[in-house]
């Protein structure tokens, strides 16, 4: 009984983490699902968001301003990836890796050469928006949920506009987009900037939640984000084609992801196995559709043989 209660105690923390990573996953959704680009910039830009926000707050700036600057920094990073890809013709995945590596230096410079800067609720009082402490977890949950809803509504609106529609068309069919007069280079750069802006916002929240910005905090972020996108799509895909609801499902995916992880840790799995576990989960979910069609093909072939 006590074990069950202890386990229940860990859940609000997991949901809170799920919400922050859900925002990150929404950012990733814009590139991975809408633009059909696997953007590795995010491993760097989530840290950039955290670093910019943390440094500004520790220097006495307002938290909202700090988060806004984090978003802008993230957008610039995404824009750089987009320009490397469209102007120089570098494959998108490689462009993302290049920007990510550049961001490692940028992040260290922003953090004044330090690998870790603390941003604890204790020291900075009410200066942070959400808390790293367990005592006011429900306030944190409420604020995060509100941020998620605002982002989802904003993106729902945006992707219903002419410009947003042209981004979706770009990810869907390049030939058709150009034939209809869409500057696909512009839409790609725009989408990458938008995506990394959202990811950096998640980074700024993550720093507040963890109580610090860390140069390594973005490592493998894309895998966690992908896991959320994939879990969200896999579980709820057939339910609706409404864009806003699909984004909410992605957030649900992130929450489920962290609930499962919290439980696995609670059951005694050493935390160093976590990254291996997340990569495995993503590999399995990414591989399943392929395996299904392969098995399906085999079936058809044998059917053909028996018919002949």
């Amino acid at each position: 009984m006590q074990i069950l209660l202890n386990w229940l105690d860990t859940l609000p923390g997991a949901v809170s983490q799920g919400l922050v990573w859900g925002i990150m996953a929404i950012g990733l959704y814009i590139t991975y699902k809408v633009l059909d680009i696997a953007d590795l910039t995010v491993d760097g830009s989530i840290t950039t968001g955290a670093a910019v926000c943390t440094v500004m707050v520790t220097n006495g700036e307002n938290i909202i301003l700090a988060m806004l600057c984090a978003v802008i920094a993230g957008m610039l990073a995404g824009m750089l990836t987009g320009l490397l890809h469209t102007l120089l013709g570098i494959p998108a995945i490689l462009a993302g890796i290049l920007t990510q590596l550049m961001l490692w230096s940028v992040n260290l410079i922003v953090m004044d050469g330090r690998a870790n800067i603390a941003l604890s609720r204790l020291k900075y009082g009410d200066k942070v928006l959400i808390s790293s402490g367990a005592s006011d977890i429900y306030v944190t949950l409420g604020i995060l949920a509100a941020i998620v809803i605002v982002i989802v509504l904003l993106l729902y609106w945006f992707f219903g506009t002419e410009l947003g529609m042209s981004l979706r068309a770009t990810g869907n069919n390049l030939d058709m987009s150009r034939a209809q007069g869409i500057n696909t280079n512009f839409t790609k750069v725009f989408g990458l900037a938008l995506s990394n802006g959202v990811v950096a916002l998640a980074g700024s929240l993550l720093a507040q939640q963890q109580g610090s910005a860390d140069i390594n905090m973005g490592r493998g972020a894309i895998v966690i984000g992908l896991a959320a996108v994939i879990v969200g799509e896999a579980l709820f895909q057939k339910k609706t084609t409404n864009f806003a609801i699909r984004l909410l499902f992605v957030v649900c995916g992130a929450i489920i992801y962290w609930l499962v992880f919290q439980t696995v840790i609670f059951l005694g799995l050493p935390s160093e196995y976590l990254k291996m576990l997340s990569a495995s989960v993503v590999a399995i979910f990414l591989g399943l559709p392929y395996l299904k069609t392969r098995l399906g093909l085999k079936k058809k072939k044998t059917e053909g043989k028996t018919n002949a």
Binding site: W157, T161, E162, M165, S166, Q180
Partner: peptide, 20 residues
């Protein structure tokens, strides 16, 4: 209708007007 809306914007600047 989304496809048609994209064609409907051909030759115009695509802004943040609601598309449909």
């Amino acid at each position: 209708e989304e496809n048609m809306s994209i064609a409907d914007s051909r030759g115009h600047r695509r802004g943040v007007r609601w598309a449909i």
